[in-house]
Amino acid sequence: MSAASQAQVKNVERNSLDAIIKKKQGRPGALLGILEEAQGLEEHRYLSEISLRQIAEGLDLPLSQVYSVATFYSYFNLKPQGLHSVVVCRGTACHTRGSLELLVEAVDRLGIEDFREEEENSATTLDGFATVRTVACFGQCALAPVVEIDGEMMSRMTVGRLVSALAKLRKGGPK
């Protein structure tokens, strides 16, 4: 894409976000809904600094408060997300049935370096191919361990099935 047409896309995004802000302004809980739509608007499903600034200005809220809300909910991403998503449940049931091994395998296979589970809940491959994420619990404990790949829940997951699912992604599977 040329620089000019990239700028055009950006402008369209800014204008749509302004429309969303106008539509929801003044309603209780407006901020959450706007953040949600703003994230959907971005190509890489995240809240860019520009979006956060635009929302704060539009709602006349302090930047620190908008940032506070955006960082509180794990649903919101502050970094660009990969094309594919791999979510590993790290709840107690899944943990006792080997979810740590699955997480390590997913991170290794996708080539993510230095993922520290205790410090962050997601990491994206450098080429933007996939994001690996942990969740506290999917609520599917009877089916543990559970992994979600591109929105599809896979229960009683094994390392073998995970490896082949990831290989399928690489070959151009779902999405």
Binding site: Y67, S68, T71
Partner: peptide, 19 residues
């Protein structure tokens, strides 16, 4: 002034300025 606020959640909660 609202220069700072709580950011993050759980054990990652911290006081932070924007970004």
């Amino acid at each position: 002034v609202s220069a700072i606020d709580f950011a993050g959640r759980g054990s990652r909660t911290r006081i932070a300025a924007f970004m």
